[in-house]
Design a protein around this nucleic acid. Structure first.
Lengths: 336, 336
DNA sequence: GGAATCTGATAAAACCTTTTATCATCACGA
DNA sequence: TCGTGATGATAAAAGGTTTTATCAGATTCC
């Protein structure tokens, strides 16, 4: 009985089958050196026939480029990190780069463990992402010899970071509401110690002007309820629009309004933030909300790493990427 | 001005600094061969001093084990895949294995591209996960020379698959409701062409017995509303409990019940499926639901790959892992 | 004292690929 | 005929690590 050889084919096998030396095979396959057109064709044909694929480890060992990057994330695979990872991967896969995903779960020990593993693997670069903008990235990162890009996280000076443009997103929401004729717009949002919360609140105040009113709380539906109950039970003029810090709060707001007999969007228009579809599509009415374009942030971060690994320069500093307003039915206007 | 040497330290540097040969250094560091205790200590100390870490590429090239695995997933980083990825990573990181995450986005071209990249990188194994149990995994997978494990997906015969135990999960829900004295339990669930939907429905019917009633629909809150409206507007006896196919449906059901003046859990108890916390924690009252323990599925899949790469045998076939009932307030009972 | 055994260290091969330098062959011009 | 250049192929080195086989020296035993 003949044993089938299950070994992977190497360039040695190609050379032997094509009747040339290893170096000639390599030159032919990579288009380097000087090779006769006929031999080159033959080598390529033979390589395809026997199913040769170069060993990335050997290649990386020599070139000192592993064609892999690491993605280090702060959180346990939350909803922010993953769309970004999709964007990163999307940009890189066609350039032959693969992505190691490392969840540090906010544990410094785990972060160091993963970081060391990545360096041992000679990754070409690292993308660091966080769930909160104002969370400090591990200091070791800044000292590495390989490129590092921060996405949804801010690195030290002279590094490269990508963020959603929170201020522009907030303005988008407020301008939309103003454009629909709303004049008493409230802002109900998350905890004030989040940087993004402060930026959005500030942009809201500037854009809306006199009469702006911000209610800080937490990221829950519960809080949306509470805030509405408080606002509508006090005397005086009532708001005709609510700009919410995220979609969960918006959902609570909408439910609370319905409970006290106020119609959305006729009496009060509501805008959310995040476009977390499981929530925003399922509210009644479906929620108009600000999408942070996380996938695009991932794409840009991936592109930056790609350029850096190719030795090109990428401008340092923070790049803020535009948010997009997703119009559904919670504001009235064209969609009714 | 002296240039700082930014090169990574190699075992050659260690050997030189310790005044021994490369082989001795290797033996000392790995505890192989015969080494004098004193020399061994010295080598280890020197290695630590100059910050030596072995190059994983070189190591992998020789040992033919890259100490990395690939995770191939069907969906665009959905909520099912990611808890599993966390579980996988959690098990493997302490064994020095890293994880390549590849999202195929249901595109066969992309799947092949990623698969080839993984093989070129000499990964030690592959975990395939899908968003739907009855989706066919790519056929190439079965022919690979490296171990493959399926998580939340079924491989061909003689392969290794891990699933949540849908039947047990459904029984858990029904028994819980029965134990609380509920006697007219309805099942409102997703599309009948999902295998898991059929399994859960069947288990519900068996466990509940005579009078079982299944309503198939889609995975939306909308559908939960509709179903409740239909059931409660028809004549005859009304249910006192609803077992829902997922948390979104359950949320729709709870909202619909409130709208028609029926109190949860006093008049009708509700159980969900998935324990998708953004929903299950935020319903009013918070939802009692079945958790599929996705992270545990990931852990088991990771463990299986680990064993296989170490040459140990792992029993083939489908392993169904128990679901867990998360008791909140939507059923009454001890939690009120 | 000489053979046998043991100890500790090392040289060299191997893993697979790319690249540099070398070599052989042939054509061509002087 | 000899040198010059160009062409096409190849041997060898390099990358960093592990492993096998070898070697020198010390120890033990008769």
């Amino acid at each position: 009985m003949v044993e089938k050889d299950t070994r992977r084919r190497t360039i040695h096998d190609v050379a032997q089958a094509a009747g040339v030396s290893i170096s000639t095979a390599s030159n032919a396959l990579n288009g380097t050196g000087r090779t006769n057109a006929e031999t080159r064709e033959r080598v390529i044909r033979v390589a395809k026939e026997i199913g040769f694929r170069p060993n990335a480890l050997a290649r990386g060992l020599l070139s000192k480029r592993s064609h892999a990057i690491g993605m280090l994330t702060n959180d346990t695979y939350g909803r922010l990190t993953l769309p970004m990872a999709a964007g990163v991967s999307e940009v890189l896969v066609d350039h032959g780069l693969s992505v190691f995903l490392c969840a540090t779960n906010n544990d410094p020990r785990l972060a160091r463990l993963h970081l060391e593993a990545l360096l041992d693997r000679q990754v070409d670069g690292i993308i660091f992402t966080a769930t909160r903008l104002d969370l400090e990235p591990p200091a070791e990162l800044a000292k590495l010899a390989i490129p590092v890009v921060y996405a949804f996280a801010e690195g030290p000076p002279e590094t490269i970071s990508f963020f959603p443009d929170d201020a522009q997103g907030a303005r988008l929401a407020v301008e939309h509401l103003k454009g629909l004729g709303r004049s008493r717009i409230l802002h109900i949002t998350g905890p004030e110690d989040y940087l993004s919360v402060r930026i959005r609140a500030e942009a809201y105040c500037e854009s809306f002007g006199k009469g702006a009113e911000v209610h800080y709380g937490d990221w829950s539906e519960e809080w949306g309820h509470e805030a509405i109950d408080a606002v509508f039970s006090r005397p005086g003029e009532k708001p005709d629009a609510i700009f919410c810090g995220n979609d969960e709060i918006a959902r609570g707001v909408i439910d609370a309004l319905r409970d006290i007999g106020i119609t959305v969007p006729k009496d009060v228009a509501v805008v959310g933030f995040d476009n977390w579809e499981v929530i925003s599509r399922q509210t009644r009415p479906p929620l108009t909300t600000v999408d942070m374009e996380l996938k695009e942030i991932g794409r840009r971060a991936g592109l930056a790493i790609l350029r850096l690994t190719q030795g090109e320069a990428v401008p340092t500093g923070i790049t803020r990427l535009s948010c997009r307003l997703v119009v559904r039915q919670s504001c009235g206007g064209q969609a009714g």
